[in-house]
Amino acid sequence: MANVLHIVVCAGIVPDPLQTLEPVTGPAGPGLKNEMVLPAVLDPWAASALYEAAALAAKNPGSKLWLVSLGPKAKLQQVMMTVAQKIAFELVPIDGPIGGFPDAHSTAAVLAETIAALPGLDKAKLLLFGGWESATRGAGVTLQLVGERLGIIDQFQGVDQIDLRDDGSFEVLERVEGGKHQVSVCAGTPAVLGWATGNLAEPRNNPQTGMANMRTIMPALQKAKPTTLAPNGLRYVSVALPKQQRTTRVVKDLTPDEIAAELVEWIGAE
């Protein structure tokens, strides 16, 4: 028996991982040099959440999938051109600042308010998805804060798998220390799941999905509400690139045997 789910995925945008990053501090606080110029991608862990959500929605007919994303409208639009080809969703864009330096509590407040106001959302059927950490702030707190604001007290972080059962309960695998998973069974929705990589490959680009999505994405982007995020008393004392440069000894003239001997000595008696 299929369960009707209302899945809301919170996913931000982050600089494409190979970009050269350099922090700068402006009047509005710290940021990245040329951040608006760098190509952006959907936050990788949140992207896993989105793919898992799509798979779950597909398996449970009648389910709905929203993607709530906070970022500068122009950048969101750019990233959605790639994401929208992969799976069908309803975009809920929030036109706000870019980057990892704004306060997570403010971000969470805006997200929670937006989600609570989603037309047609039944909180009893809600699965709130997102990445367990972002690739920008990397704090792993926003989703919990949104969950708390929505009054959801079944929360899971570092999730790699969800198995939904016919009775609406589900088993969740969360990453814990030592490369293991903690296994839990939750009685049912609502719940918060912060995803790690999951088990699904990135879906292929499907132009028809893209076409269908775009009919709703462009109007949604045009209506996106401009938002500012309060600093909430968060102050940055310094923001800098790590300076550590090691003095590297490059060993070119040893035989594999000699190198092996040196390494064994280095590894020591462990």
Binding site: V251, P256, I259
Partner: peptide, 26 residues
């Protein structure tokens, strides 16, 4: 990249050969 201040020691060698020897020594 390792040779440019990212590692303390870099061995320019074939890891297959080195690791085979390391394992046998260990």
């Amino acid at each position: 990249g390792w040779t440019r201040g990212k590692a303390d020691v870099v061995y320019i060698a074939d890891a297959f050969q080195v690791m085979a020897k390391v394992n046998s020594l260990l």
